[in-house]
Design a protein around this nucleic acid. Structure first.
Lengths: 220, 220
DNA sequence: GACAGATTCAAACGAGCGTTTAGAATGAAT
DNA sequence: ATTCATTCTAAACGCTCGTTTGAATCTGTC
């Protein structure tokens, strides 16, 4: 406290940032309903009123937790897929597309970084939404879905738009299920291999989905 | 009222049954957290205290809603799969197993019967559990998973136990995702084709999963 | 050092929740 | 008709929640 004289990080935003961090962690761990404003402010080391002063309510804080990260994540998701088709000159395969997407989805769960919390938040929000549709689905989920659908169609010639869309749902359904399963297992106390296991699971989802897509494309 | 003298249906259980029915519907529609005891008792046409008188609390009522249906459902799920291997003398195919399971899972959603509510309840409970693990997962989910895993292995010779287990997760992940998607779409106001659509989706999940399982089985 | 705005705080508010209670209605048995 | 346990009801209890309030504290400026 005594030293370190002149450059605190973002003078007025310290409390605001601590609130966002605490809220992100607690919402990801326990969900919106089971996280009280008093939980958040206690973890942020501040007063109950701080949430309403800085964000104008619990709902707005929740929205802001997503807002802080969503744009960046969506861009990375989509551009990672787009990169596949630009660099080497159209040599991307179905394997590339599916394994790239699956890895991007599951990798944040393997390292214990901040990225993990966002993935867990998204998995929760997809199942029991608290954000207005336009904020989450229309700005985040739908673009990613469309991007993956387009990528699939470009590497699997026979695939119709509807078929691609349903394949996207099949992939995302598997991935969200994996995340929920991991969350529940962790809550239940056990914390097993995890790292090795998630690689195995990512591999499985990739292979399974590739086989599934080929089967869909190869029908009437 | 005046006539029909001697055989009312279960004299003392009328209120109890109305509570179970109302609770089942509301829990399925809005989830455990967003359904209050006052909601339930108002829909059942009785007093707030009735829940505690007949069930001893909201949690026990929730448990009883499942208890009333789970045993029957689990038996039907497992025996439907088991029937495939008994009647015609082992001619069951992978297509039979997957399409039987998928249909059993999604059909209750197509007719608007009582079965629909239970499926929606299960999808909710799998994602945010309120029952003790032993009641729901160990008595319902795990046996069904094992049953499906065994069925898969018996029609796909190369499949290891771990591979089969992961394929089961892939199938269930897709199906749960479909149900959540249907619930969210319905909540969002629109009520589109539904019936035709669910047949298409069931078909898709079946084909996709068969292709996925074959791909998993055909690897090193 | 005094002022003004921004920030934090302890305390309380009002609403909704699950639950409890005491007593009134009900219905069958004596 | 009286008894008695069962069932139902209106009212309240205690608690947690998100939010508000008004004063205290901090921060930078003249």
């Amino acid at each position: 406290m005594t030293f370190r004289p002149d450059h605190q990080p973002e003078p007025g935003d310290a409390t605001r940032t601590r609130l966002l961090d605490a809220a992100e962690r607690l919402f990801a761990e326990k969900g919106f309903e089971h996280t009280s404003v008093r939980d958040i402010t206690a973890n942020a080391g501040t007063n109950v009123a701080a949430v309403n002063y800085h964000f104008g309510g619990k709902d707005n804080l929740y929205r802001e937790v997503f807002h802080r990260r969503l744009a960046d994540l969506r861009e990375r998701r989509i551009s990672t897929l787009a990169d596949l088709f630009e660099s080497p000159g159209g040599t991307a395969t179905l394997e590339d597309v599916v394994s790239t997407f699956t890895s991007a989805f599951l990798e944040p769960l393997m390292d214990h970084s901040e990225g993990r919390l966002l993935i867990e938040l998204i998995a929760r929000e997809m199942v029991s939404p608290h954000l207005p549709r336009v904020v989450f689905f229309e700005e985040m989920i739908d673009p990613v879905r469309e991007s993956l659908g387009r990528a699939l169609r470009s590497v699997v010639p026979g695939l119709t738009e509807d078929q691609a869309s349903r394949c996207v749902h099949s992939i995302i359904g598997q991935l969200v299920h994996v995340i929920h399963h991991a969350q529940l297992s962790e809550q239940a106390g056990r914390q097993p291999q995890e790292e090795l296991d998630l690689h195995t699971i990512a591999d499985h989802v990739t292979r399974f989905s590739i086989g599934g897509i080929r089967a869909i494309a190869g029908q009437s």
